[in-house]
Amino acid sequence: MFGIRRFRPAGGQAVTAILFLVPALLVLVAFRLWPAALSVAGSFQHNGEWVGLDNYIFLFQSDTAVQSLIVTLIYNVIINPVQIAIAFALALLLVDKIVAPSVWRSLLLIPVGIPLAVSSVVWGIAFRPDDGAINAILMALGFPAQPWLTSPDQALLAIMILVSWVGVGYWAFFLTAGLKDIPSSLLEAARIDGATYWQALRYIVIPLMKRPLAFVLVANTVSNFLLFPPIRILTAGGPSGSTNLIMHEVFLNAFTYDDQGLASAEMVILIAVLLLVVSLQFRFLRDR
């Protein structure tokens, strides 16, 4: 060991290391860091000229931009807890005494293997108000047909249903891994002491699941804040801006209205809000 180190001085490895790292670092700089830096710089520019905070001021006075931010927040406040709660319930079922657990778990992973754009297309057809499958099922169960994506009141809900269908099985998959790590001796002891299902859940399982839950919640929040394909494919932000999540609003500013400065400023706001929410989630789940 020592002989080898003396034989090959460590200084030589630094050069080799740089050579091995260069390709990945180049891609990292060119396709991640440089555009991120340009985006921040670009948010203070209009058509290449420095305009200070004008873009930001314009955005906070623009009804469309403010509505988009509000829609994004409403969407996230609802969908993230709901998805994680369903995923957690599903995970609890999957680690219970069930027949063929691996089959069920594999089936639940199918939706996330399908590209979101494809799921959006299929659900888009299913949500059609006149001849869609969802309304067919509702009517067969005795409920009236709903307008879904064509109504400002229901379009966001329809997007939430579609996105949850995609994600819930995936997050349940992560959570089952966490649940399996809980020592069965703990649950055994609780059972001997006469703890009910809900008591064992509340006082043993949930406290021990804080880390996996935090991980899943944060990962889910990030992907939901950046959601784009179903909006672009199904609603284009409408009706009346009711599904105009920020990613789509940034896209519109960048490519339909060709205003890069405005798009950059909006992207910076989105990332700032996202970082704030994620750090709050981490703090919240750590403290309790």
Partner: peptide, 28 residues
């Protein structure tokens, strides 16, 4: 390979790649 700041470079590389791609896609 052994070089100074290896752990730091590793952390930086992983963190910067964890920035979701959608976040830079439009400026990129």
């Amino acid at each position: 390979l052994r070089f100074k700041l290896r752990e730091l470079v590793f952390t930086l590389v992983v963190i910067s790649f964890l920035i979701p791609f959608e976040g830079v896609a439009i400026p990129l």
